[in-house]
Design a protein around this nucleic acid. Structure first.
Length: 272
DNA sequence: ATGCCTATGCGACATAGA
């Protein structure tokens, strides 16, 4: 398959556009793995979560050398999102409106090559019940409001990221082991279902309607070798994007690498 | 019931993750 060379604009406009999401769990610790993955899979857009650095700490030079522009919404120590793109990106939103005292860096959005791409790092919400879980649900409400506004624009939109929700029991290695976890609570699942009910397409499930499609394996308790995973990284497509969907997948083998993130990338391809 | 493991911070343990 023809793909753009690193650093070049897409030379064949008829090629599908690949848009990916990857929770790197620390850009500083993960840079070698990130660069390997970019070189191997050549996504046109990559939404990153948990960069765990301020904007000034982002390795812009290495990312540019790999052929990508970078938009960064960072934070000291934890959280932080970024959007990498081969084509120039125009930022359309930084943070979600609706809660001025919220200082977490969890949302960044840009227009790239005619597609609106939102990078999402939804709050984990543990322990639940409690203030962190309440924050998660409020943040989910704000995301739903943003999704409604984007829907109304009728533009092709991809909302990609770590949603910290296992949508159904098929997305959890063990419902019993996870029963008390914020990721599987009915309120969390209901908020995610509200997006789908509004018409957004869960791209991974649209190509693989059932069965395991995990994107996360804990570092602890041998979760990866036992395949005790979760599906929590999702790409939601508006109708304008869904109409162009040609493929979607999960780069599962990334989890086996040296000093891997606990998440792996997920991606979609949209025809031009 | 809890910790297991990993990353970050101005660190010599704590916080956060999921």
């Amino acid at each position: 398959m023809r793909r753009a060379a690193a650093g070049a604009v897409r030379p064949f406009p008829s090629d599908p556009v690949r848009i990916a999401t990857f929770n790197v769990n620390g850009i500083a610790a993960r840079l070698p793995r990130l660069l390997d993955w970019l070189a191997d899979t050549q996504p046109d857009v990559a939404c990153l979560q948990e960069i765990k650095t301020v904007d000034e700490g982002f390795p812009v030079a290495a990312i540019e050398a790999a052929g990508y522009h970078a938009l960064v919404h960072g934070q000291k120590g934890f959280n932080g999102v970024a959007i990498l793109s081969k084509q120039p990106a125009v930022e359309t939103q930084r943070g979600l409106p609706g809660e001025p005292e919220d200082d977490h860096a969890r949302y960044l959005e840009a227009a790239i090559d005619g597609v609106i791409v939102g990078a999402i790092y939804l709050p984990n919400g543990n322990p639940q019940p409690g203030p962190k879980f309440d924050y998660k649900l409020r943040w989910f409400d704000r995301l739903n409001a943003r999704a409604d506004a984007l829907w109304a624009s009728e533009l092709p939109v991809v909302l990609a990221g770590d949603y910290n929700v296992c949508p159904t029991s098929e997305d959890v290695f063990s419902e019993a082991a996870m029963a008390a976890d914020a990721l599987v609570q009915p309120e969390s699942r209901a908020a995610y279902r509200r997006l789908l009910g509004g018409g957004w397409l869960d791209a991974i499930r649209s190509v693989q309607p059932s069965g395991r499609a995990y994107t996360f394996w804990d570092y602890q308790a041998g979760a990866w070798p036992r395949d005790h995973g979760l599906r929590i990284d999702h790409l939601l497509l508006s109708p304008g994007a869904a109409d162009r969907l040609t493929a979607a997948g999960i780069d599962r083998t990334v989890r086996a690498g040296e000093r891997a993130s606990d998440h792996v990338p997920a991606w979609v391809e949209l025809r031009s």
